[in-house]
């Protein structure tokens, strides 16, 4: 386990319990409340209804891509390649040196991420 006390004065440290534990308990309670509010807002219909066109927001980009690309083989290959690129991202982007740790301080990776996110949102919103 990592020791955070090395090269640190006691003023720079705080106890894990109760400080951090309490923080996690508060946000977990908040999550449960959000989930219960969502249940009240979106109640279950009395009879199950067929909704074949329903696509959740997080699968919308894949659904749109599937509509754009007619070949199943090309679609699956593209999704697999994108997933592999996403998983191996830390090995593809060279480590920033010195203070350039944040993404917005490094133009090329930042541009790639912003263009990707913007294009995904645009494709979903514009219903292409």
């Amino acid at each position: 386990m990592k020791d955070y006390t090395k090269n640190k004065s006691p003023e720079m440290l705080e106890p894990f319990s109760p400080n951090e534990l309490f923080r996690h308990i508060i946000v977990s309670c908040f999550l449960v409340v959000v989930e219960l509010i969502a249940i009240i807002i979106f109640p279950l219909p009395f009879k199950l209804t067929s909704k074949p066109d329903y696509v959740p927001w997080f699968l919308l980009p894949l659904y749109k891509l599937n509509k754009l690309i007619h070949s199943e083989v090309v679609f699956i290959s593209l999704v697999v390649v994108c997933a592999l690129l996403f998983v191996s991202w830390p090995y593809l982007i060279p480590n920033g040196t010195g203070e350039h740790h944040n993404l917005w301080q490094r133009p090329i990776p930042f541009a790639i991420v912003i263009i990707t996110i913007t294009s995904v949102i645009t494709v979903c919103i514009l219903n292409l």
């Binding site: 955070y4 006390t5 440290l13 705080e14 106890p15 894990f16 319990s17």
Partner: peptide
């Protein structure tokens, strides 16, 4: 792991 564990301040 819990009672005596110290972590960096201001997370």
């Amino acid at each position: 792991n819990l009672t005596r564990r110290l972590i960096p301040k201001g997370l």
